[in-house]
Write a protein that binds this DNA or RNA. Structure first.
Lengths: 344, 344
DNA sequence: CTTGACGTGAGGTACGTAACTCACTAAATC
DNA sequence: GATTTAGTGAGTTACGTACCTCACGTCAAG
């Protein structure tokens, strides 16, 4: 009834413990035939390696680094908070997580940090940054050094990252578009899209999804050219004010990412808040308060706690070649309204 | 830099390993003063027990039982599938999960199963069933026997369950109501609510939340008396057909739980599908297909994988008195549209 | 003074696995 | 024929913790 151990395998296969160990850890110097004997015994007895005992014996420590942009963005703050929470709680497994802040808006600096990373010190890296050729090269180097690499929030598809932990941003944009269309009830008018920076892949994909569904299903809505904040909130406030004054028939605003606070300020200043349907991304203290105040209609989010924990599970799985439970690691596009907002 | 062990504590406190062990496991025969010495050393060195090593030494196995209603409901099927998935993947911890099917619609039989449960064989139980006095008494017995008990999907508040794993159903109802109201764009008309059984607490709470928000924010919509399926799909189809014919001004339908398939069939038969705004609960093969076919507007769901994994984590935490990460265990009310539907 | 309960230390074994050494055989190579 | 090498078994130590036994000292009640 109790789980079989290596000893049972050895007995069943008729080989010694050492041979079982050699096979299980794919060490050399084992005859093909013995390998098969052991494998058959494993199969027959349903042996599964006791990971915690193995890690204990190996004194294995997983050391992971999270490369996070050093921006004052509220979304990044929630990610850092989630990372801190993970660090507080001593998991059953010996995992250490280092958070490394990389200058935001400077992909080269990020690439340099990646290149300078001591590959001896880490088993895996989670990277949140836009993809550039330099970043791609740095990731390839990390992979070659044997580290597990996951892309966080924004994908790095052309690099050899092992995994992407984040939402399907095109689908997120489509979701935002569908809700915008439904909420506007077939009215004729304009929709404004506001972006942090159109350089980052996630913004582009969201925009693409949003435009697509509006064109398909809500042709009565006209999407205005995207307003870009370039991470300058003062600039953003004035541009949004200007646009809102110029276009009195703007019915809805879709905020692709950063700049939520500035957009809200601009709308409050122009008195257009609550008369516009507002859809924003990421649940932060700003958007939470705006939801509660009925200023924002919907927030599209990804659960940062899940993001961080999933990254760690995936990094661990890659660094010791164990399978991944896809359904657990799939990051959902969550739709948050005032009603299903979770407290705290 | 490496984690302190019991040895370090013993050295720091100036006592023997045995004494440290006695203190850490709160065994008798230790002087007050020695207890304090050890506790101070633990604090100073930041010692945290290595749970996997401890479990290894204890040959501890967590044995959990899941009591699940034996209905042909698609939602229950997805829960069983999630349970099976968990059983397949051998976690790092030695956890065994038994699924026990209890007759649906027979709370007494469920109570009898709980009463008959061998308290020696299990460390914890997750229970999905409506609350009755018999169930409450059975839960109290389990608690007294030292088992951890969580309520799954539907809460058992008056029993002494340790934890509830599921969504806030009143908030789920409010969410459904708010979406229904927004999607109906201020039109005047009727809304139909269909329930599996109004006995179960989750249905009542959803209905309550739904009615509340419609009354508050969408007074132009009239909610018809609830149609109850009593888990009889043929009956449900004919009632829904009848109601739909009698009331030509039904604009929306809110399905509180079971019977989704019958409702869809009835609407298809009466040709009212797609002309009604339809909001249903739980993502199953039925509702998924209906979402993809644009027959359902929104599905409100709880992630069953999360539900099951969270239950297990919580049961484990309660059975060895370790803290719970609230943010990880909070089950979210997920809003699913065709656009943010995840594949598979 | 004896008895016994209490408090403590020393030391051991065990859990399941990893990783190592040493010894040995059989076959291949020199 | 001597040397190497691949393949194997036997055995040991270690990881961090639990839990056990035994011995010993202290102190108070009988």
């Amino acid at each position: 009834m109790t789980r079989p151990t290596v000893r049972d395998i050895a007995r069943e296969a008729g080989v010694s413990l050492a041979t079982v160990d050699r096979v299980l850890n794919s060490r050399p110097r084992v005859r093909e035939n013995s390998i098969r004997l052991v494998q058959d015994a494993v199969e027959k007895l349903g042996y599964v390696r006791d990971v915690s005992a193995a890690n204990l014996a190996k004194r294995k420590e997983y050391r992971f680094a999270f490369i996070i942009p050093d921006s004052r963005s509220k979304f990044v703050e929630t990610i850092l908070a989630a990372l801190n929470e993970v660090k507080q709680v001593p998991g059953p497994d010996r995992i250490s997580v280092d958070t490394i802040l990389a200058p935001a808006d400077d992909a080269n600096a990020t690439a340099r940090i990646l290149t300078g990373l001591d590959v001896q010190r880490f088993d895996g890296v989670a990277i949140m940054c836009p993809e550039t050729p330099q970043v791609r090269d740095a990731v390839i180097r990390l992979k070659q050094a044997g580290l597990a690499v996951v892309a966080l929030v924004s994908d790095l598809p052309s690099s050899r990252r092992d995994h992407f932990v984040g939402v399907d941003n095109k689908a997120a944009g489509r979701t935002a578009g569908a809700l915008m269309g439904r909420f506007l009830c077939g009215k004729q008018g304009k929709v404004l899209v506001v972006s942090g920076s159109l350089l980052s892949r996630d913004s582009i994909e969201r925009r693409f999804g949003f435009d697509g569904i509006l064109a398909e299903r809500f042709p009565s809505l006209v999407v205005l050219p995207t307003v870009e904040s370039r991470n300058d909130n003062y600039r953003l406030i004035s541009i949004v004010k200007q646009v809102m004054t110029a276009h009195r028939d703007i019915l809805g605003i879709y905020a692709l990412g950063s700049g939520n606070s500035a957009i809200l300020d601009a709308l409050r200043a122009t008195g257009r808040i609550r008369s516009c349907t507002l859809i924003m991304h990421e649940l932060t203290e700003i958007t939470r308060a705006a939801l509660e105040a009925d200023e924002v209609d919907v927030v599209i989010m990804q659960n940062v706690g899940h993001l961080v924990r999933s990254s760690i599970r995936v990094l661990r799985a890659y660094s010791d070649n164990t399978p991944i439970v896809d359904s657990q690691e799939k990051i959902r596009i969550e739709i948050v309204t005032k009603e299903n907002l979770v407290e705290l």
